[in-house]
């Protein structure tokens, strides 16, 4: 594994009006890693991801991707740099068909329509259930299928790093396992992953490293294995 820093977040401060939501968060993700961001509700995990993706603007601090500053860029240009997000609650376009959702995912990619079609076929190969339902509107899919579609849609932009926000939310334990296996597969195919999760146990089990977020600050960080063994963390996040 290379130690080349792909994503560097440095001393990030984000406000919602007067509320100081992110208080000086710093973190980094190296190429090829799976890094988790773990924390309770309201800790600032989603805010951090949305700031990286450009949906929220930071007051101070920097987000660098491959050394390039992102904090002043618009969301669609950040995506073009190679950062795709699978948002919390999946947020597939319910009235668009599965195929249209995937096409929207690839909208920033400049390529021939044949190559784009081939790309969609690749996604279908990864998620055969999406192919069966390609003409259905996304709103008719089950929760697990929607999560697969959201991941497939994000992959269509050919990201270097995939940001996933609570992919396990609202899914049965069986499906959670399946989704985490997919995340692992995606990572093995060469995509770096930054994973936000409340399900700390699952997240740590597939991660290389993790950051623990508490009320807008990083309280702990380290390699996933040693965090899993840590008593305080076990007590607070792993239910042991």
């Amino acid at each position: 594994m290379s130690s080349n820093k792909l994503l560097e977040v440095d001393n990030l401060n984000v406000y919602y009006g007067n509320i100081h939501a992110i208080k000086g968060v710093s973190l980094n993700v190296c190429e090829g890693e799976i890094v988790s961001l773990i924390g309770a509700n309201g800790a600032g995990k989603t805010t951090t991801l949305q700031t990286i993706s450009g949906l929220l603007k930071a007051k101070t601090g920097s987000v660098k991707f491959n050394g390039k500053e992102l904090t002043k860029m618009e969301a669609h240009n950040i995506l073009k740099c190679g950062i795709a997000q699978v948002p919390e609650g999946r947020r597939v376009f319910a009235n668009l068909t599965v195929k249209e959702n995937l096409e929207m995912g690839g909208i920033t990619v400049k390529d021939t329509s044949e190559n784009k079609k081939a790309e969609i076929e690749e996604i279908y190969k990864r998620f055969p259930r999406l192919e069966e339902r390609k003409k259905q509107t996304a709103g008719t899919l089950s929760g697990g299928e929607q999560q697969m579609l959201a991941i497939g849609r994000a992959l269509m932009s050919r990201p270097k790093i995939l940001l996933l926000d609570e992919p396990s939310m609202g899914l049965s334990p069986m499906l959670v396992k399946e989704i985490f296996k997919i995340i692992k597969d995606v990572n093995e195919s060469g995509v770096t992953v930054l994973l936000v999760e409340q399900n700390a146990k699952m997240a740590l089990s597939i991660s290389d490293r993790a950051y623990i977020l508490e009320t807008g600050k990083v309280s702990r960080s380290g390699d996933a294995h040693s965090l899993m063994e840590d008593d305080a963390i076990k007590k607070a996040y792993l239910g042991a």
Binding site: S53, G54, R91, F93, L96, M104, I107
Partner: peptide, 21 residues
């Protein structure tokens, strides 16, 4: 047209997939 439908349904998600809102 599809990107218009996408923005109309969920502007935030549309921005995330790179649609120029």
């Amino acid at each position: 047209g599809a990107s218009m439908r996408a923005v109309s349904e969920d502007r935030g998600a549309a921005e995330l997939v790179g649609i120029n809102v």
